[in-house]
Design a protein around this nucleic acid. Structure first.
Lengths: 192, 192
DNA sequence: CTAACTCGTTCACTTAAGTTAAAAAATACA
DNA sequence: TGTATTTTTTAACTTAAGTGAACGAGTTAG
């Protein structure tokens, strides 16, 4: 668990043993049950999440319907929009599975970043990377059909298709559950 | 022009006159003609862009078709994916209009960031903001129909609809030019 | 144990986007 | 200015996603 975290950090900066201990002493690890809500729409929060184990999702409630738009699994980091713009959240976050998360808050992060330039550097690089990647993902979504998106997902994140309920996958792909079901049937047909 | 830049920076950090002069002495401003290509797919580059005036776009060529996925206008910043992952670019960048850009390269940025922690701080905050916003934009795209996306654009970036050719807007909205034209006709019909 | 729910699938029908083609309008440029 | 080129619109037809409803399997709760 600590190893997962430090392996991740080591991709960006190197930490001394003291620094590692300092991080661990903050006691940020949290064990959460499937279905636990971490953030509600309308709510303000300062918490950021890093997934050590399990899966969390972002979803909206639009016309009474849940619309899941993003999944975060092992080694994924998420700072909600409401933390950045200090406004009520536009979306919910909850656990898709029993999960182990590192939960930090923005005040604490600001303090650490100003004390340890190394950490600030890591955060900059990480968010620049995530931003560039999000851009490319968004582009791929725009330029492809639901069927292509599904096949792309099958390639890039096959695990998701196993661990996530299909109606959540459907809205993640920008379609209705019935359409995903039909689409899958269509693909099976094609293969044979 | 300098003012546009410093107004932008002042939202994040405050600069002394010396620091401002130092930035200006780097001579990063570039004047570009409409249609100029800044980056080609397959090419490697270290350049980041900040739009002071005008408009640039990201586009792909898929099956011989141009697919425009993003527009950057006044006060927008863009670091291409290829700069981040040091791999050949998956997309093109070109000027939609005559534009004034600030063009920096990643080596230079790394140097400045390590010399001036203030700058590193700005870059971190900026990319965290952009990442959170990109997430919300992507979500809005996923959860809405082409018609809703168009109406949303009409509200949020009415200028774009004026300054950008419709076939580029269409792929930005994830549809074909014919569909956008039809969609617009449908909306006009509804209004009356 | 059964009633209530949730989830995935199927079906018939509606709606809108994709496709192909052609014409009309706007723009560039020689 | 007139011609070429690009952009936008229109139309007819195809394809696939949305909608509303129903069904069975699996799960949960009383």
């Amino acid at each position: 668990m600590e190893n997962t975290l430090f392996d991740f950090i080591s991709k960006y900066i190197s930490l001394t043993e003291e620094e590692k201990d300092a991080i661990l002493s903050l006691d940020l690890f949290r064990f959460l049950k499937k279905g636990t809500t971490l953030l509600e729409a309308g709510q303000k929060s300062k918490n950021s999440y890093f997934v050590l184990k399990g899966c969390i999702r972002i979803y909206y409630i639009i016309d009474g319907e849940e619309k899941t738009t993003a999944f975060y699994t092992e080694m994924d980091a998420l700072t909600p929009h409401c933390v950045i713009n200090k406004a009520p959240s536009e979306y919910f976050i909850s656990c898709v599975e029993d999960s182990i998360l590192l939960i930090s808050n923005s005040d604490m992060e600001a303090e650490i970043n100003s004390k340890f330039p190394k950490f600030e550097l890591m955060c900059r690089i990480l968010s620049e990377e995530l931003l560039a990647k999000e851009r490319v993902d968004f582009d791929a979504f725009k330029t492809s059909s639901p069927e292509q998106r599904y096949m792309n997902l099958l390639q890039k994140r096959p695990d998701l298709i196993q661990r996530v309920p299909q109606h959540q996958l459907a809205s993640f792909l920008g379609i209705k559950p019935q359409s995903l079901s039909r689409l899958r049937a269509r693909l099976l047909e094609k293969k044979s």
